[in-house]
């Protein structure tokens, strides 16, 4: 009986192993950014006034609710919103970018563009995004 179970388990593992190898570069939870560029809600709150919160979600979600004082900067209207963000940025400020949840990618893209295109440093992505902030604050 045990042998049969082992055979069935081994048969079931074959396609799973094949899929894991085939999709090794497409694992959805793999973060494309370094852990040092991520920040938790607690860490970011500790930065207090030295942090600028950037909301990378679409306009309607920002309009519905957002982190108090956050600035909207999404890729739908990047060219229009970026100058507004840069108008409030100051040297020495830390930038905390967030999107909806752990699985969203918008904050990573916005953070990447701020580093690459505007060549700003101290740009961080909020772990867990808006959902995590809500959990800790409401």
């Amino acid at each position: 009986m045990a042998r049969q179970t082992a055979v069935v388990a081994a048969l079931a593992l074959l396609p799973a192993a094949g899929e894991a190898i085939y999709f090794r570069d497409k694992i959805s939870w793999r973060s494309p950014i370094a852990p040092s560029e991520m920040v938790t809600v607690e860490q970011a709150r500790g930065w207090s006034d030295t942090a600028i919160w950037v909301d990378a979600r679409p306009d309607d979600e920002f309009a519905n609710d957002h982190v108090p004082g956050a600035i909207s900067l999404n890729e739908d209207r990047w060219n229009e919103l970026l100058p507004q963000f840069l108008a409030v940025w100051a040297p020495g400020k830390k930038i905390v970018v967030y999107c909806s949840s752990l699985s969203c990618n918008a904050s990573r893209e916005v953070a990447r563009r701020l580093r690459k295109e505007a060549q700003l440093s101290d740009v961080f992505v909020l772990e867990g995004g808006w959902e995590a902030w809500l959990k800790k604050n409401r």
Partner: peptide, 12 residues
């Protein structure tokens, strides 16, 4: 841009 001191207000 000419920026002010690093302690600039955060409010947008």
């Amino acid at each position: 841009r000419i920026t002010n001191a690093p302690t600039a207000p955060v409010a947008p």
